[in-house]
Design a protein around this nucleic acid. Structure first.
Lengths: 338, 338
DNA sequence: AGCCCACCGTGAAACGGTTCATAATGTAGC
DNA sequence: GCTACATTATGAACCGTTTCACGGTGGGCT
């Protein structure tokens, strides 16, 4: 049923034949209609409609060379932080009639590379990448081959490659400082793997704050690696912590999804927040303020992040720029002094 | 600074020249390495590395014809509902080593068409679309031209086009029935435009439930059209309602993001939920249970939705199938009897 | 009338791969 | 030593566009 016609798709030559013109003319109708007499144009347009012709993008691009698409590879498409950034990118691209293709690497360097290769092979004008590893050699290679590259949410170790980031060391520091000020001296950090730069940086910030307060990071900090950076990951991690008997009085979560899982688990385990356990998240996603215990979180300018990254790609594709935003701490109930 | 080499990208011919073989051999190394003597292969691979050659996807596809990519166009990439669905799609595609490109139409039929055209011109094997309008003629045309099409989150009016959906009439009915059972007789429905099928269907379900309860839908129901289906849209809509003086005792929101905006606004306006106003959402996103007033919501099997849609495209590209899931109501505090 | 120019339309080259018929080489069997 | 055959490598045709040098036509001007 409904098997589509197995016919070869109509080509420009078919259209030309049907309209009684040359292929060059059909191409002109498609790309520079003003150079074609209205009468001819109409005949061609009729033929296009008749044959329901759709341009072959591969052939077009092969010959013409350019395309107004840019690709983005984010760590997790289900994380509101990244989709908010994507909205920012889209907004900027829209202004120049560019289109955005989004792919999710799932923290997997292999997937990231696959998607980047796909984008590059298809000749996108640039890529915006939140790298899944510290190693950006493959990105430098892409850049050398002439495709624009912007590192997102992480500063570039290579001055030749643009980046738009938020100071993650400062973010970690802000969160830890705040918890220290609330009197906590035993803090758990539910962090992602240090192969993800942001995670390593936030850890560094936490350690810095602890040291500045005269505490021994070894003793005051328990870092737990969350395998998947979402609510399920947070739930698993906090359960592991609770069972370990090691009892800090505060939990700092690498993102708000993880914090969501933590809050959910603490509630079912009847551990009061913030009385028995303070919780701080990261990203300040839309729902953070509306949770049963409004969540203290480190805010990043998501929209601007995306806007700026896209802007770099469109307006200065050949020069490298490094933008660093500063995070801010939004204090709410989840970390109030017990 | 760091201006990339303006050189033309290396082509297969360059590689062939460098390795001292023919272009056919290079192509064989790339596509059927076993047909090439190890020695030759190594020389070619060395040349590839040397020139940092990247295959031109357009040329490849132009000649070879196929590509293992499928495209998805969703209404709003920032809505967790759609990204959860996307995760389901990805999971299924991964099993067959397909890749997914996601684009967001922003409820705009024009954007939707632009992205679909882009996908089609680039020869994706299929598209998964959450249509922004009732009119699916352009999708039927794509189908006729031989590209797979699956309608997502909305039943297909054309038996020849596959769809994977959740019964939205039933969903609206569930929500309304529940509110009626809680004793509400004046209900506001913060809905999206009826041009979006899901919105029209949910409205139909609400009306059905009211009628079944012997109420006059005209009198019992105030429908307010939310312009952007997110928290900001919800906030604007509920403020409009509050100012209008028209005071229902319950609000049914077309999705949880809108509900989030409503809850946020009611809290700042000191209107108690559910005592002064009951709230019901739709989608049962991850954070619904953890809100300050845990949100009653209509749950849809997001992951399965995506899984199934991708499966249809991969396993039965030439036959049309229609899958309809049933929603369930998850009752929480936000709609408890006052 | 003759010249110049603007305007349309033509058709073939080029883009960079894949594919396939064919050539070249080696190897086994008799 | 010769044939038959398997294994590799070759190179030209082809995919469907865009682009561009060129030819034809007709109008305006001297």
């Amino acid at each position: 049923m409904s098997r589509p016609a197995a016919h070869r798709r109509a080509s420009i030559a078919d259209v030309a034949r049907a309209a009684g013109v040359s292929v060059g003319t059909v191409s002109n109708v498609l790309n520079r209609p003003d150079r074609v007499l209205p009468g001819t144009r109409e005949r061609v347009e009729a033929a296009i409609a008749e044959l329901s012709f759709v341009r072959n993008g591969s052939a077009r691009q092969l010959r013409a060379g350019t395309i107004t698409t840019i690709g983005a590879v984010v760590l997790d498409i289900a994380n509101p932080f990244f989709t908010d950034v994507a909205r920012g990118i889209e907004e900027r691209l829209d202004r120049d009639d560019y289109t955005l293709m989004v792919a999710s690497s799932d923290d997997d360097p292999g997937r990231e590379q696959r998607y980047l290769r796909l984008f590059e092979e298809h000749g996108v004008q640039g890529v915006i990448v939140v790298p899944a590893t510290d190693d950006i050699e493959h990105l430098q290679a892409i850049r050398r081959r002439g495709t624009g590259v912007v590192l997102l949410d992480r500063p570039s170790p290579d001055p030749g490659i643009s980046s738009v980031a938020v100071d993650d060391v400062r973010g970690g520091e802000l969160a830890a400082q705040h918890l220290l000020e609330q009197g906590h001296t035993r803090i758990a950090f539910l962090n992602g793997p240090h192969t993800i730069r942001q995670c390593a940086d936030r850890h560094e910030g936490v350690v810095k704050a602890l040291a500045a307060a005269g505490l021994d990071p070894e003793a005051a900090l328990t870092e737990i690696t969350v395998t998947s950076l979402n609510a399920e990951g947070g739930e698993a991690a906090i359960r592991g912590l609770l069972e370990s008997g090691d009892q800090p009085t505060a939990v700092f979560c690498v993102n708000d999804l993880v914090a969501l899982g933590v809050l959910r688990t603490l509630r079912t385990e009847n551990i009061a927040v913030p009385a028995d356990m303070a919780v701080v998240g990261y990203d300040d996603v839309a729902f953070a303020a509306e949770l049963s215990t409004p969540l203290t979180s480190v805010r990043q300018p998501t929209h601007e992040l995306g806007l700026r990254a896209a802007d770099l790609l469109l307006t200065a594709p050949d020069t490298a720029e490094h933008v660093m935003f500063q995070p801010t701490l939004v204090v709410r109930t989840s970390s109030a002094r017990p």
